[in-house]
Design a protein around this nucleic acid. Structure first.
Lengths: 189, 189
DNA sequence: TATAAAAGTATCGAGTCGAAACATAAAGAG
DNA sequence: CTCTTTATGTTTCGACTCGATACTTTTATA
């Protein structure tokens, strides 16, 4: 039954990601979870780089995430920025050394090596298939999608720039490439 | 760059697998790692159901794995079988209640739901692509493949039955569907 | 026969993780 | 405008993971 095959192979690929993350992180004394949090902060936009954002993404509790971010901050891999308008909020951004550390770990070497033998179109096809899988999985479970801003139903085009229909704020093009915790795909119907 | 897309999406899918494993396992008081070990023991053949086998598969140390298996045994999810010929070896097999517990967790519900909307051939195509990706990834890193016995270069056909060229033992058809720690794909050349 | 290697167990310490309690700030109700 | 509720984040505690190390027993090798 190919459904189980998909599950088993995905699980195995996850193991490899984790094993490699362990090796990579070991260099800088980081654990897989910490690398994942760092990776998320690198990808997400300014509405999503908070404790709550990481919490929803990693599926852990906010207490745990708070600890993880404290470690990353102590090692100088991320910086802390209290929100100017809402004083409950704290934003975290990868520092230069955080981004450098991340560049070693993403993409995983075993993935680079495996996809090296494939053509660009084949790789793109695989990426599209996986994204499609992820998307339908998230829709059916009514979970947060964390998609790129530019694929969001709230994203509005204003002249040559963009605008978020939720916050009303104006967005640059790079802004719309980042992932957002409020992201929703357009309605299928 | 689609290589990073593949990495990011895979990482996200891993998160979902883990989140769901946490929910599922929480019912029986199991942690994600323990479920993974149980799942491995369910899939592997009689040469691979040892502490060392699980160790190589999960990429942890044998001390850790020994602990994990002790927990699973104490909860009655696996049974312990000392090897008859080599008295250093201990085999572990999922019990009835272990298999029942596993049936709840595999395949993950979000995967079932997502692939439900696809045709059988599309699902099979995705499975094949992932298996292919896994295979080349493992080849390039010279790591253990843990493939199904029937795809192994040591597998020999004898009349209507099979035989392992490494151990010399005769194998049944179901035997050859299980995964093995000594597995090697046939040479590409 | 002596030595080395392999499989597994036991123990310790650092760190993850979830749960719960807590603090602070914003939003809402009357 | 005050009181209550809700949201974000931190701290603390206990259970557990995980790697490192030392150890035992058994098998393989020189």
């Amino acid at each position: 039954m190919s459904l189980k095959q998909v599950h088993n192979t995905l699980e195995r690929l996850c193991n490899l990601l984790r094993v490699e993350a362990r090796e990579q992180g070991a260099g800088g004394g980081l654990l897989p979870v910490q690398l994942e949090a760092l990776h998320y902060l690198f990808q997400c936009n300014r509405y999503s780089d908070t404790v709550q954002g990481v919490t929803e993404y990693l599926g852990q509790t906010k207490g745990t995430v708070s600890q993880t971010l404290k470690v990353l901050e102590n090692r100088g891999l991320i910086t802390r920025h209290p929100d100017s308008s809402d004083r409950r909020l704290v934003h975290f951004r990868p520092s230069r050394s955080g981004r450098r550390q991340l560049a070693h770990a993403v993409p995983a070497r075993f993935l680079s090596a495996a996809l090296e033998t494939k053509s660009a179109t084949e790789t793109q096809q695989l990426a599209d298939d996986l994204i499609e899988l992820l998307r339908t999985a998230q829709e059916t479970r009514a979970m947060k999608t964390f998609g790129a801003c530019k694929t969001c139903r709230f994203n509005e085009r204003v002249a040559s720039r963009f605008r978020c229909g939720l916050t009303g704020e104006s967005l640059s093009k790079p802004d719309t490439e980042k992932i957002c915790r409020e992201h929703q795909y357009p309605e299928a119907c």
